[in-house]
Design a protein around this nucleic acid. Structure first.
Lengths: 208, 208
DNA sequence: TTAATTTTCCCCTTTTAAGGGGATATCCAA
DNA sequence: TTGGATATCCCCTTAAAAGGGGAAAATTAA
């Protein structure tokens, strides 16, 4: 019997998880935390088992909570369960010590299997997540702080001159940054660059 | 007893919905459709009741299915249930005949209440959706089909000449569309336009 | 069957971005 | 302390987008 702690702020998804885990005697639901505060409280009495961890939470991020859980030294495993398939989130979550990373379109069978595997210290990733992880090792696009700064201003519709004014640097410098952004991201022009930026989470869409 | 047809491709959410509706004798789940094809089949035998309709589906959109359902003339009500809070989706869904629009972070109580209300021909909207609807009456940005088509190609990084080739129209026409897009959306340039497009859901982010 | 919108096409000029280099301080990490 | 990346600045040319019009078919809606 594997104890499971669910961290999930969407009631519907939480309900779904409870439903698919409670049909079987294999799993014992320790509790449901709808935010970081609730999690920390419930984690106190959680001695061993598996945590199903949402990443975006009202008051904090699942990445922080995962670090918290791992740092406790308890024999627990964290499975990330989220809608977000961004490279940088996957990387941070795995760096934080998560053993598996599933997307929310996962089937009940996949989730149950991931929990079983976690008990045996084995990983499991959604197909799309695997692709992202493979790309992680190949070509890691690393944008510098300044480049990200410029990128965000481009996304706001500023021209190079306006960006230069805002950052107190020469227009030529902004020009360089922009060229490097296109080069590094493999984008053909500003439009494609911004699309990339939103996809990769450098620029946040209003709906994320 | 209200018959309910669920249209939802995320297994977890579907499971959650089944769970919160099956506890009560008030609702009778007619079926679960995970895509448009399945919906059309199951809709054949659905005489009256409420449809919980996801918008983004693997093979079609909930907007199309809603139109289909309304056109049938059967005494049914459609409730949109989705993660997307974009103005144009809300508008299209309501235009298609949906009575209510809920976000997926809705509570079980809210969902049950929305179904009851739908049976009495009354609407219900999530808080954030209400805000969007209020803004709708103010300034409604309506992009034409062709404009959206061009917009998506711009987001892919194509130049006007490439878009013209792809759509078998003159480069000058694409130029016009692009100008109108900037004008209608109030964007200063392509970068801002693409940001707007992702925000409003005209262009899908990889992570949505 | 009008009227309105959409789609298509065209003129013009100016501004901005993109593509091709290069160069020098600075800062960070091996 | 010595590379390597970063951030800054500069040259050049070409391509593309933006800004300002206008106008005729084709659809769509009233």
């Amino acid at each position: 019997m594997i104890p499971v702690l669910i961290v999930e702020d969407h009631p519907l998804v939480a309900e779904g998880l409870k439903s698919i885990l409670s049909n079987s005697a294999e799993f014992a639901i320790h509790g449901l935390a709808v935010n970081g505060a609730a999690f920390k409280q419930q984690f106190e009495t959680f001695k061993t088992g598996v945590i199903l961890m949402d990443i975006r939470l009202p008051d904090t991020s699942g990445i922080e909570l995962c670090k918290h859980a791992v740092a406790s030294g308890k024999p627990i495993k964290v499975i990330a369960l989220t809608t977000f398939n961004q490279q940088y989130l996957i990387k941070e979550m795995l760096d934080a010590g998560a053993i598996s990373y599933l997307l929310k379109n996962a089937t009940p069978d996949e989730i149950r299997e991931a929990i079983r595997l976690a008990g045996q210290n084995q990983s499991m990733f959604s197909k799309l997540v695997k692709q992202q992880i493979n790309q992680l090792s190949d070509k890691t696009i690393v944008l510098s702080k300044r480049e990200i700064e410029v990128l965000c201003l481009i996304a706001q519709g500023l021209t190079n001159i306006e960006i230069a004014d805002k950052l107190f640097i020469s227009q030529l410098t902004v020009d360089s940054h922009r060229k490097n952004l296109l080069l590094k991201t493999g984008s053909k022009n500003s439009a494609a660059l911004i699309k990339f930026a939103v996809d990769e989470g450098y620029v946040k869409s209003r709906n994320e």
